[in-house]
Structures are given as structure tokens and as C-alpha cells.
Simulated scan of single mutants.
Amino acid sequence: MSTFTAVMQYIGDLDDEFYDDERQRDVWNEASAIGFQLFVWTLLIAGSVLPWVAGVTGSWITLGVLAVFFTVSSMVLMYAKARGLDMYTSQSLARPRIYLCTGVYLIAAFGAMITLASEYLSAGGTAVFVGMAIGACVGVGCGVHGLVRKRRLGREAEAAAEATELQELTKEQI
């Protein structure tokens, strides 16, 4: 077991005897999934509202909220991957829920950037926006990398399935 998996299992308290009962485990997993989704949507909605309600302070908080959202979501995906489940190959990303989540995320990000731009560009400070531009480039690069990786993993999974099927057919003929 990798250090990452061990740490995530410790954080999740997965060695508790509570998980020995299958029904309790299933109900708890469903409740945890609902709680995670509630956490995600609360962060996104708060991040979308804060720049407009609380101004510059709300914009900085929104950037922190978006960083927490990204970090927690990444940890969930990384743990699933470490346990042998790649969410990018096992589900379609072209779903209305994904589009809505991405839209709310972008509303929060652009709301924060617009509010911060109006505050700091009028004062002549451009360092924040240089950082934002670099971050946007890194984000786009990561997105492109993710799409390319998803396609590659899909092709590899398809090739492995075909190879397995071919082996089974060969065994049947012998």
C-alpha cells in the first residue's frame, strides 16, 4: 500500500470496526458521497456570490475557496485512481452536471478576477494579474493534458479488452 493510500485511509478512518458490516458501509458510502457533493456545490455557490457581495475581500476568499475545491476534488480522484478506479475512463465527462459545475466554477473565478482587476489595476499593480495569467496558462495546459491522457487511457483499455477477448477466443478454439 502506498503512503498516499495509507494516509487517505487514516484520514477517512477506514479501519474502524463500523465498516465491517456491509449495510452500514454502503449507507455510509452513500451519505459520504452526498456530503461531498453538498460540500462541492456549497463551495462553488459561495465562491460565485462572494466577489459580488463582499468585494475585494470576498474575491480573495473566493480564490481560497476555489483552491480548496480543486485540492479536495483532486484528492478524491487520486485516491480512487490509487485503488484502481480511473474516473476519467469509467464515466462520460460530457454530462449536464459537469457543464453546470464548470460554469459555476468559471463564474466564481471570473467574478473574483474582475473584482480584483478593478481594484488593483486602477492602483497600477499588475503583479496579481501576471500571476492570474500564468495560472490560467497552467490550468489550460493541465486541462489539455487531462484530455489527452483520457483519450490515451481509453485506447489502452480498449486494446486490453480486445487482447483479452482474443485470448479467450484462442483458448476456446484449442
Rank of each mutant, 00 (worst) to 15 (best):
V53C: 13
E156K: 00
V138Y: 02
L38E: 14
F39P: 05
S2I: 05
R155V: 00
G139Y: 09
L169S: 15
F18T: 11
T57M: 11
L166A: 12
V140C: 06
K150S: 05
V72H: 09
D26G: 06
G141Q: 03
V128M: 01
D20G: 14
D21F: 14
M132C: 10
F129H: 03
G103C: 09
G139N: 02
G135S: 08
Y79L: 15
E22C: 09
R149M: 05
V56C: 12
E162R: 00
G135M: 00
T5N: 06
P96T: 01
L169P: 12
Y88I: 03
F129T: 00
D86P: 03
G139D: 02
V144W: 00
M132F: 06
S32L: 07
I34S: 05
F110W: 07
N29H: 11
D86A: 05
L121V: 00
I45M: 12
F69I: 03
D86E: 09
R155Y: 00
Y99H: 12
M75K: 04
S73L: 13
G35I: 06
F129Y: 04
P96V: 07
L147N: 08
F129N: 06
A67N: 07
R155A: 01
R151C: 01
T89P: 02
S59D: 09
R95D: 05
L38K: 05
L85F: 14
T126C: 00
I11K: 02
G47F: 10
A54D: 02
V138Q: 04
E119W: 06
L77Q: 13
E22L: 12
A33D: 06
K81D: 14
W52M: 15
R25I: 09
E172M: 15
L116M: 01
L106W: 05
Y79P: 10
A82P: 03
L14Q: 08
E172K: 15
E22V: 11
V27H: 11
F36W: 02
A159G: 01
V49R: 14
A67R: 04
L93K: 06
T42F: 09
S122V: 04
T164Q: 08
L116S: 07
T3V: 11
G12Y: 12
Y79C: 12
E30S: 07
V65S: 09
A127R: 06
Q24P: 05
L44A: 03
F18C: 12
S32H: 15
A33L: 09
Y19S: 08
M87W: 11
F39N: 11
F39S: 13
F18P: 11
G47T: 07
A163Y: 06
T115S: 07
L50A: 14
L77T: 10
I114C: 03
Y99N: 01
D15T: 15
V68F: 10
A117Q: 00
F110L: 15
M8C: 05
V72A: 08
K150L: 04
A6H: 07
E172V: 14
G111E: 11
A159W: 00
T5Y: 07
Y79D: 08
P96L: 04
Q24F: 13
L166S: 12
F69A: 10
L116R: 05
E17A: 14
F18E: 09
F4C: 06
V144Q: 08
T3W: 10
Q91N: 03
R151L: 04
E172R: 15
T71I: 08
A82W: 12
